[in-house]
Amino acid sequence: METRLAPYETLTAVQQQQLATLEVHPEQLPYSGDIYCALNSLQVNPSPGIKGFALLADDIPVAFLLLKRPPCLPHWASEHSATLHALQVDRHQQGRGLGKACLQALPAAARQAWPQITALELSVDSDNVAAMSLYLQQGWVDRGEAYKGRVGYERRLSLLF
């Protein structure tokens, strides 16, 4: 299986339709949201500060994520970074290393979109053990800060370039 992380705007009409059917497990919804909300972020209020990326496996969308920069950057992030949001792997494709593939391709995609950034940052619910483990295994560093988030306490992680 060949994978690549593609900017949303480069997807064909068929790939965009396929992406719209992406589903996560119900227990993951509080953490990642659903594809409808993620795509809505891109389409309703287009901004140069938000970009979507689809992970294609043999040219079929199997995962999606958002990156944000000012003016869409969260208050807790450094102005020199981009932040990761709404990482979603289709429930029928989970367990195949696709989340890892997204994270491995992400630094190059982020720097291509915004060459001036020096890091990626994210906020992850401390109870989301699977996500936390995945991020740490891929070189993200826990900044040691927690704050009250939507679901519970969230940890801030960084990946410096």
Score class of each variant (00 low, 15 high):
115 P>Q: 03
116 Q>G: 03
116 Q>Y: 00
116 Q>P: 00
117 I>V: 08
117 I>L: 10
118 T>M: 02
119 A>G: 07
119 A>T: 04
121 E>M: 13
122 L>F: 01
122 L>H: 04
123 S>F: 06
123 S>H: 13
124 V>M: 07
124 V>S: 06
124 V>W: 00
125 D>M: 04
126 S>V: 12
126 S>W: 03
127 D>N: 15
129 V>Y: 06
129 V>R: 05
130 A>P: 05
130 A>W: 01
131 A>V: 09
131 A>F: 00
131 A>M: 01
134 L>S: 03
134 L>W: 02
134 L>R: 07
134 L>T: 04
135 Y>P: 03
136 L>N: 12
136 L>P: 09
137 Q>L: 13
137 Q>E: 12
138 Q>Y: 11
140 W>T: 10
140 W>S: 09
141 V>S: 15
141 V>G: 06
141 V>N: 12
142 D>S: 05
143 R>T: 14
143 R>E: 15
143 R>H: 08
144 G>H: 06
147 Y>K: 11
147 Y>W: 12
147 Y>P: 01
147 Y>M: 08
148 K>T: 10
148 K>E: 14
148 K>L: 11
148 K>H: 14
149 G>N: 07
150 R>A: 15
150 R>E: 15
150 R>H: 14
150 R>S: 13
151 V>N: 12
151 V>I: 14
151 V>P: 02
152 G>S: 13
152 G>I: 07
152 G>A: 15
152 G>N: 12
153 Y>L: 14
153 Y>P: 04
153 Y>S: 13
154 E>G: 06
155 R>L: 12
155 R>T: 00
155 R>V: 03
156 R>M: 08
156 R>L: 13
157 L>E: 03
158 S>I: 12
159 L>P: 01
160 L>K: 05
160 L>T: 13
161 F>V: 13
161 F>A: 13
161 F>D: 14
